Computed example of a mutant assay.
Amino acid sequence: MSPFSPIESGPNGYVRTHASAGIGRIEFYHPKSNSLPSAVLQELAATVTAVSQDPAVRVIVLQSGGTGPFCAGASFDELAAIDHRDQGQQFFSGFAGVILAMIRAPQFVISRIHGKAAGGAVGLIAASDFSFAVEKASAKLSELAVGIGPFVVGPVIEKKIGLASFSQMAVDADWRDAAWCERRGLYAKVVPDVAALDAAVDAQAATLAAANPEAMAMLKRVFWTGTESWETLLAERAAMSGTLVLSDFTRNAIAAFKGK
């Protein structure tokens, strides 16, 4: 049974936390396929940071609510409403904030992927240190299809799965099945269904919660060596996306996508 209270399908979504036995669980939700508007991104980044600073938390589990997609990526409603470059950069910086909070946390972050993941969601998964997914959890980088590119999430995806696999996802913006994601290292382990997913996540989280936190923190720094300048890099990437989202091509592509 989920430790979280039942979902309230409000218009703005939520970020919730629950800590027990050394495991800090963070759940995000949005009624539109768990898409991520700025408010949810900012709250998610702040929540990851806050939970990571709790000395009682030995491991973090990131998950989303509902039974549909894990996360549909950026909010297309918000993308369509962007009307100047700074606003665009600020929106895409929201993804940078979550990625940086995840990789800077001293604890390992486990992602629980119960459904499909698109766009920015792939970046969040790549920023985790270990991820479990169900067999139906296909993933894709959809940005090029709407006239932009996976610029902000690109560095963390490339670091996780390599340049060749990242470029394949970025160029051919179609779904990759969970087996493909597991072979490339985006998913650490794929299981048949949600029951098996919860069992696997809970078992791994419990094991890590009993491990040496200093050793895990040192390993975490090793995993993310080379990211020391990412605050600057991801800000530059967000500016690139913020510029492209204002182009006529992108505006028309987003309008067409929303009209489907």
Rank of each mutant, 00 (worst) to 15 (best):
Ser111Pro: 02
Ser111Ala: 15
Ser111Lys: 04
Arg112Ala: 14
Arg112His: 06
Ile113Gln: 06
His114Leu: 00
Gly115Ser: 10
Lys116Trp: 09
Lys116Gly: 14
Lys116Ser: 13
Ala117Lys: 03
Ala117Arg: 02
Ala117Leu: 03
Ala118Gln: 10
Ala118Thr: 13
Ala118Asp: 09
Gly119Glu: 10
Gly119Ile: 04
Gly120His: 00
Gly120Pro: 00
Gly120Asp: 09
Ala121Pro: 00
Val122Met: 08
Val122Ile: 15
Val122Asn: 07
Val122Cys: 10
Gly123Met: 09
Gly123Lys: 09
Leu124Tyr: 12
Ile125Arg: 01
Ile125Thr: 08
Ile125Ser: 01
Ala126Gly: 07
Ala127Arg: 04
Ala127His: 03
Ala127Asp: 08
Ser128Trp: 03
Asp129Arg: 01
Asp129Phe: 07
Phe130Ser: 05
Phe130Glu: 06
Phe130Val: 10
Phe130Pro: 03
Phe130Lys: 00
Ser131Pro: 14
Ala133Phe: 05
Ala133Leu: 04
Ala133Ile: 12
Ala133Cys: 09
Val134Ala: 13
Val134His: 09
Val134Phe: 05
Val134Thr: 15
Val134Lys: 10
Glu135Cys: 09
Lys136Gly: 12
Lys136Asp: 13
Lys136Pro: 04
Lys136Arg: 15
Ala137Ser: 15
Ala137Glu: 10
Ala137Phe: 05
Ser138Gly: 15
Ala139Trp: 01
Ala139Met: 14
Ala139Ser: 14
Ala139Gln: 13
Lys140Pro: 05
Leu141Asp: 06
Leu141Gln: 14
Leu141Ala: 05
Leu141Trp: 06
Ser142Glu: 10
Glu143Tyr: 12
Glu143Ser: 11
Glu143His: 14
Leu144Cys: 12
Leu144Thr: 14
Leu144Gly: 13
Ala145Glu: 11
Ala145Gly: 11
Gly147Ser: 09
Gly147Phe: 08
Gly147Glu: 04
Ile148Trp: 03
Ile148Lys: 00
Gly149Val: 07
Pro150Ser: 00
Pro150Ala: 14
Phe151Asp: 08
Phe151Leu: 11
Phe151Tyr: 13
Val152Asn: 06
Val152Gln: 01
Val153Tyr: 00
Gly154His: 04
Gly154Ser: 06
Gly154Val: 01
Gly154Glu: 06
Pro155Tyr: 04
Pro155Cys: 06
Pro155Val: 09
Ile157Ala: 00
Ile157Leu: 11
Ile157Thr: 09
Glu158Asp: 07
Glu158Tyr: 01
Glu158Leu: 08
Glu158Arg: 15
Glu158Cys: 12
Lys159Arg: 15
Lys159Cys: 05
Lys160Met: 14
Lys160Asn: 11
Lys160Phe: 07
Ile161Val: 13
Ile161Leu: 02
Gly162Asn: 14
Leu163Ala: 11
Leu163Met: 12
